[in-house]
Design a protein around this nucleic acid. Sequence first.
DNA 1: TGTGATGATTGGAG
DNA 2: CTCCAATCATCACA
Length: 400
Amino acid sequence: MLQQQPLTGNGPSNGRGLGMSGHPGMHSLNSVHQPSQHRSDGDTGLEVTENGHESRRDIGDILQQIMTITDQSLDEAQAKKHALNCHRMKPALFSVLCEIKEKTGLSMRNNQEEEPQDPQLVRLDNMLLAEGVAGPEKGGGAAAAVSAATSSGGMSPDSSLEHSDYKSKLSQIRSIYHTELEKYEQACSEFTTHVMNLLREQSRTRPVSPREIERMVGIIHRKFSSIQTQLKQSTCEAVMILRARFLDARRKRRNFSKQATEVLNEYFYSHLSNPYPSEEAKEELAKQCGITVSQVSNWFGNKRIRYKKNIGKFQEEANIYAMKTALVATQNDDSPHTPNSTGSGSFSLPGSADLFLGGSQMNGEQPGYILGGQTNGSWTGRNTSPHAASPHSDGSDHSE
DNA sequence: TGTGATGATTGGAG
DNA sequence: CTCCAATCATCACA
C-alpha cells in the first residue's frame, strides 16, 4: 500500500503542511499525535510500541501526501487517493482530524445554529394559511375577506361577481406561490443533493464528518428558506393589495337596475305620507329589487332627504308613479288589498303637481304625499318609528 | 371633461 | 338601533 507509493513528502516537515491546509486546529501535528496514538494503537496494529517516532513520521507522510495531492495529475492523484483510502491509518487519522475540526472553528459556529424559528416567518405562514394561499385548497380566506367587506355595508347585487373575481385572483396568487415554492424546494433539494454528494466524495480524502455534511445541509436550507421568506412576503403583500382593492370595491357603486328603482319609487310615492318602510317591508323590497335591506334603507334615506330638499324637482316623478298607482288600483279595484293603496287610487291624478302644490281639495283619504308634503318637506317632524304605523298611515301599508 | 344623479359613508341626535 | 344631514365617490351622459 503505502510502500507501493513513492513518498513525495519528507518526514520531518510533517506539521508544516497542515498549517496551510486551512484547518487552524491542525497547525501542529503534536496536538494530533497524542489522541491519535491511542486510537491507532488499537485498530491499526501499527507497531508504535517500538517508538513514537515511526508512527509520527508515518502520519506526517500521509498528511504530506494529502497536501500535495492537488499538485499532481489527475491519474496520479486518483491513484494516490485510492492508496490513501486504503491506508491502514486512514480511519484513525480521519477521525482525529474530524475531532479537531469539531473542537475548533466549527464548534463555534455550532452555537449560532440553534436559532429559534423566525417569528416573522411564522407570521407570514399564518397569514398565508388564513388567506387560503397556503394550506388546503379553498381556504377560508376569501370567505373571510368577503364577510369583512360586507359586514358593514351589505352585499351589492353583483358582489358575487366581485367575490368570484377576488377568488380567481387569489387562486392566481396561490398558484404562482405554489409554483415558485416548488421551484425553490426543487432547487434546494437539487443543490443539497449536489453538495452532499460533493462532500461525501470529499470526505473520502478530507476530514468531513457526516455531522458536518448535516450542518452544511442545514446552512443550505436556511439560505433557501430565507429566499422562501421573501417569496412569502411578496405573496402576503399581493394578497393584502388584492384584499384592499376588494374591500375598497364597497365604495364603487353601481346604480340599481331600472326595475329595482321602479319598485322602490313605487313604494316611496305610494307611501309618501310616511315613507318609512318597516323591516318586513324593507326585506320584501330588498327581495324584489335584488338588493340588501341596508341598501333599501340607504335608498329611502337618500330619497327622503333629496325629495324633501327639492320637492319641485320630483314632481314629475311623483306624478308618474301616482299615475301608475292609480292605474294599478283601478285595474284591481275588486281587490281590497291593492299593493299601493295608500292613496286609494280614488283621486284623479293624485300626485299631480297642481294638486300637490296648490294644496288639495281632497275629500276622503288623501294620498300620503299630499298630507305629508308640508311646506318644509318634513314628514311631520320625526314620527319615524319605523316599526310603528304612521299616524297618517291608513293601515294599508301592510299590503306589501 | 364637466355636471348632475345616485349609492355609500360618516357623524350626530334621539 | 334608526334616521337625518352632509359629504364622498362613482356613474352616466351630453
